[in-house]
Design a binder for these strands. Structure first.
Lengths: 247, 247
DNA sequence: AAGATCATTTATTGATCACAATATGAGATC
DNA sequence: GATCTCATATTGTGATCAATAAATGATCTT
């Protein structure tokens, strides 16, 4: 991830002046977005500007811009001191979040089903196969990654540059909580709804595809709420675990 | 706002000599958001970082953060050169935008209706009266401002911190186009749906309130599309008019 | 010994600097 | 006269600096 800078000990001798300028914050942004969705950050964790910058091997400036954008997308929240942290979701907010998910992603699925091509369907089937393998192995990281890939490639087919950013914003918000929940053994996890969705796509039944997505989201929401305490997901281990940048 | 630097044209809001640090970008953000919704910026207009900073009397740094956030919210788009500009909406995107508006704001209206208090209803009635006055006077600025106030105070009553940011993002996107459309004499503009919504709220009919909002949005969308050319709203005057910061 | 106060430390924030890429304009050439 | 080219200026990006405010730890007081 470090671009090319000097070995972080000294700054004076710019030996390799390869610039690669103008796209550092793009790298950082993609990294952080993926990290939020895939569980690299814990709810409640404070993101220190300088620590992050040091971790990425750049100056605080690009990181500042990225954090700004993530706060704007409600993926992060700022404390009174100006720091930003991963929000901890209350059960009420989580419920609201998934209610909106049902609407937005249901609409996206319906639109996508109307434009679905055989290539898309086979691609989704392949992704779902990866998801099933990850479930079998209890591989949380690939579970989340494959699941996200399934949903997003489906919605991408809707070709709506209005819906996608909104859906992404929602996923960034519940991503960290989603990861936490999968750590709990009692959390049910299957992909049966995905099979229904694939079947609906094959027969060109947009309404059924929408129903499948809505059911998938509703099931996930219920499972999440069942393991959520009064002030968010209860953790089976200490809160302060620093598992940053370890994937 | 202004710290202590050059004094070009007094801003007046700096009543206290206290530094007021840590809130400059907040001021700029509110100013820009309101400007976008109320029509201070034209679709297609490029926003120069340094020019904006000079206009606000601050360094480019807070402006950079604000523009970053607005880009993240899809209120602005970035050109290949890294500059940002107000997006020009195609009729297709505008249609998508309003379809999502119907869902999100319909849901918000329904929720709000279930929690509506007499105080809220009388407040909405007062706002609507201001709107009618603005329509009477053909005061575009107050038209947009009152209309936005009506919708947002209604949605605010839904008390959903999930829905509100999404709705705000949508309003920021169609705000500039909305303003342009009102410049066209043939654009119909009335608030009859608002009366229906108020009536629905008074009798506690959430479903009717939702229908009213959806009808309001759909009517606006149709009117906008009727005056929209193939690549966006056609302007009755030259494109380059610089009406920045004039309200 | 416990709590409060103060100092140190660290954090973000706004300003400024330096560099690169892009847009702009003038001038020369075909 | 139009177009291509080159020089200039402007813009965004990343890094660094200065100053303020919050957090933390140590010390003093009760």
């Amino acid at each position: 991830m470090r671009i090319d800078k000097t070995e972080d000990a000294g700054n004076g001798s710019s030996d390799a002046p390869k610039k690669e300028r103008g796209h550092v914050h793009g790298h950082v942004l993609r990294y952080m977005r993926r990290g939020l969705m895939v569980g690299a950050f814990l709810p409640g964790q404070v993101m220190s500007l300088r620590k992050l910058a040091a971790g990425f091997g750049t100056s605080p400036m690009p990181v500042r811009e990225v954090l700004s954008r993530l706060v704007a997308a409600n993926a992060l929240e700022e404390t009174k001191g100006g720091s930003v942290r991963v929000p901890r979701l209350s059960p009420e907010k989580l419920s609201d979040l998934f209610a909106v998910r049902e609407m937005l992603e249901g609409m996206a699925a319906e639109l996508a089903a109307k434009k679905a091509t055989p290539a898309l369907i086979s691609e989704l089937a392949a992704i779902n196969k990866q998801l099933l393998v990850a479930i079998e192995k209890r591989d949380i990281l690939n579970c989340l990654s494959s699941n996200q890939k399934f949903h997003f490639t489906l919605y991408e087919a809707a070709a709506s540059d209005v819906l996608m950013p909104l859906i992404e914003s929602l996923w960034l918000q519940f991503g960290p909580t989603m990861y936490m929940s999968l750590l709990i053994p009692s959390m049910p996890w299957n992909a049966s709804d995905h099979e229904d969705i694939l079947a609906a796509l094959k027969e060109g039944n947009a309404s059924a595809a929408k129903k499948g997505i809505v059911h998938d989201i509703r099931t996930t929401c219920k499972a999440l709420l069942s393991v959520a305490g009064s002030q968010g997901i209860e953790l089976p281990f200490a809160q302060g675990a620093d598992i940053q940048f370890d994937y």
